[in-house]
């Protein structure tokens, strides 16, 4: 599904991502964890094309995405959420989803219809996405007037609205309480069941351990471990990198990060 091969990103001599190779299978929930500054967010930005890679390739379903600008990568099937919320504050909740909506050319043909029209089928689909995110009652509120938790859910809904094959979640649980994390877990599983591949970058370990199929651990831009949640939790190198000591339990110890 998504393949990273020898991916590198250097900023003025700092190797933010340094020769990262990964293979994410279709339909899996893949976790990417690591200490702050280990290159997780840079990896996400490289995948969705915010800046070009210094070296290496990103391949989605056999197609090399190198050189494609972000809006083309969305059309190729990648959407994402942002760690620091980036909604269109002066647009309504409903309009935020409408903007992100991408429909195959055969369904919505032509410039006029794409930019000036809106069909009943699309309106229904947007309402469904709102329902999924628990925002059905807030369709006509401005995004900037939503509470923090609702804005987080709208970030997710907007990414889903683009109908991606692969969705990148950049610390979606940051600032959430236990109950909200549980809701988010259910939503991620819903996405998985509908066939969407998920790449989850997260510090909240109860979410990562509870929802992912496999996890890769980054440190200093390199992959130091790869395996199932159980394998990662028992990995000494990972504990060492995360907490400076192999004797600490990851799932308990790093919620603060």
């Amino acid at each position: 599904m998504l393949e990273l091969d020898d991916l590198c990103k250097h900023f003025d001599g700092i190797r933010a991502v340094d020769g990262l190779s990964l293979k994410i299978e279709r339909g899996e929930v893949f976790g990417l964890i690591g200490p702050n500054g280990s290159g997780k967010s840079t990896t996400v930005n490289l995948i969705c094309g915010v800046f070009p890679a210094t070296r290496g390739t990103v391949t989605l379903a056999g197609r090399n995405l190198g050189g494609l600008p972000p809006h083309r990568r969305l059309n190729a099937g990648i959407s994402r959420t942002f760690q620091n919320i980036r909604l269109f504050g002066e647009l309504t909740v409903w309009q935020n989803l409408w903007i992100a909506r991408r429909d195959a050319p055969s369904e919505e043909t032509g410039f006029m219809k794409n930019w000036f029209g809106s069909s009943a089928r699309i309106r229904e689909a947007i309402d469904e996405t709102l329902e999924f995110a628990g925002l059905a009652g807030r369709a006509n509120d401005l995004a900037q007037n939503l509470a923090f938790g609702e804005q987080r859910r709208l970030e997710l809904a907007r990414a889903v609205s683009a109908r991606p094959q692969l969705i990148l979640l950049d610390e979606p649980a940051a600032g959430m309480n236990r109950e909200e994390v549980e809701d988010l877990k259910q939503r991620i599983l819903t996405l998985k069941n509908s066939g969407i591949t998920v790449l989850l970058v997260e510090h909240v370990m109860e979410l990562v351990m509870g929802v992912t199929d496999r996890i890769a651990v980054l440190n200093f831009g390199k992959r130091i471990a790869l395996g199932t949640p159980g394998e990662i939790q028992g990995n000494d190198a990972v504990r060492e990198a995360y907490l400076g000591s192999p004797d600490v339990d990851i799932a308990e110890g790093s919620r603060h990060a």
Partner: peptide, 25 residues
């Protein structure tokens, strides 16, 4: 009232997010 206008306003509010929503700024 149209997606065209909403897209231009989205770009003016959050240019990076807009591009990642498939809008060619």
């Amino acid at each position: 009232g149209t997606r065209l206008g909403l897209a231009t306003r989205a770009v003016s509010q959050q240019v990076v997010a807009a591009e990642l929503c498939g809008i060619a700024s």
